[in-house]
Design a binder for these strands. Sequence first.
DNA 1: ATCATAATTTAGTCCAGCCTAATTTCTATG
DNA 2: CATAGAAATTAGGCTGGACTAAATTATGAT
Lengths: 225, 225
Amino acid sequence: MPKEISHNIQDYLKRIYEFTLSGGRASTNQLAKALGISAASVTNMLQKLSKTKPPYVTYQKHKGVKLTKFGQQTALKIIRRHRLIEIYLVEKLGYTWDEVHAEAEILEHAMSPLLEQRIDAALDHPKFDPHGDPIPDINLEIPEIEQASLSSLEIGSKGRVLRVPNEDPQVLRYLGEFGIRPGVHIKLISRTPYDQTMRIRIIETSEEAVVGPNLGKNISIAKES
Amino acid sequence: MPKEISHNIQDYLKRIYEFTLSGGRASTNQLAKALGISAASVTNMLQKLSKTKPPYVTYQKHKGVKLTKFGQQTALKIIRRHRLIEIYLVEKLGYTWDEVHAEAEILEHAMSPLLEQRIDAALDHPKFDPHGDPIPDINLEIPEIEQASLSSLEIGSKGRVLRVPNEDPQVLRYLGEFGIRPGVHIKLISRTPYDQTMRIRIIETSEEAVVGPNLGKNISIAKES
DNA sequence: ATCATAATTTAGTCCAGCCTAATTTCTATG
DNA sequence: CATAGAAATTAGGCTGGACTAAATTATGAT
């Protein structure tokens, strides 16, 4: 009985999806912060989302929510659109890497199935967005990749950057300056013993960059020989 | 004090603009029909729109509304976006002429100034949309053209189609079949004396088409030698 | 285990925009 | 110029989705 899935609900589902990607549940506070609204409003909505037929989430008092299969499919539809838009803006309209997220956040809610299909075709059915995030295909299947964090790399070994944190323009610009972006190949040169700061070389440009342990944990890579 | 101009209000303003293009006022009923909502709701909103600071419309009981200068500028911004999107979809994403209107209706509300600018540039700052409607430029100035209706053409004389009614897909497809679209050149061959049905030749294709007086009145042309 | 603090939920409001029903005003025709 | 019917308005309500304040439950440090 989900009549017309509202713009708002789409945002909730997308956030919940992101927060539960690595298992676990999404908490009320987490969502409130991410959506910029009060925790009370979130509680309210979560209860509503757990009572639709079929329900979007399973809700347990004081324990947050998880997406149902149905909720997950719904979230993936939106995420697919989001990521297609991001790629499109970069490839076809000259956006820079750090400009696309906010724009896609809005456009994703205004995209018809036809437009989605046309954009997907115009991009030749891409599998990853400019952040390196996978794009669910038309059947909402997600291409899988063996991921590791930059922090887990051993000294002297190499990897290809898969994704970087994509929410904070500050961080994006910082990484951009050093050329650390999805697709580039890197090599870990050293790690300081005390605070775990890493020095890495970007292979394509031969430049070097310094990455702290927190940021390093949030940069995903595929290990390479 | 117009905080964030809502999606809904944008639609009202756009309709009012369209209905008052040739002078006069937009009536409550007219708007209700166009927006698919009740007349009471429209009255309500019109009163609201006339009380903002600055007001979007001037409202007189039982006499409908007119846009203020401010309301007009606001409407033109949206219309600019709408028409840019239409062109873009046709030129860059392979949409057909009759598919774009509904799509643009939604996307126009999700377009950032940056995206507007990028699309405008990608299209090389077009002056007319696929329907032949003029596109306000970045300063909201509208390119002017001497328009006449197809019905006003004299027998044997020629014109270039400027615009056709753009709301009804049925009509669009009908016209499309005969190749009657903005940009094509036509010549009026004959007009039946009794019911004013016109027979016209499309110069580009040498095809002939028949147009009734009602439709003829709603097809704009630029007269040509 | 206790208790302060953090997280969550409940209760009660508010606002935008829509609705229907009832009423009022306008207008065109006899 | 009276009046029926059309158009518009008023009154009262509803729903979605937000809010604040107050109450409750969880949690982590002593």
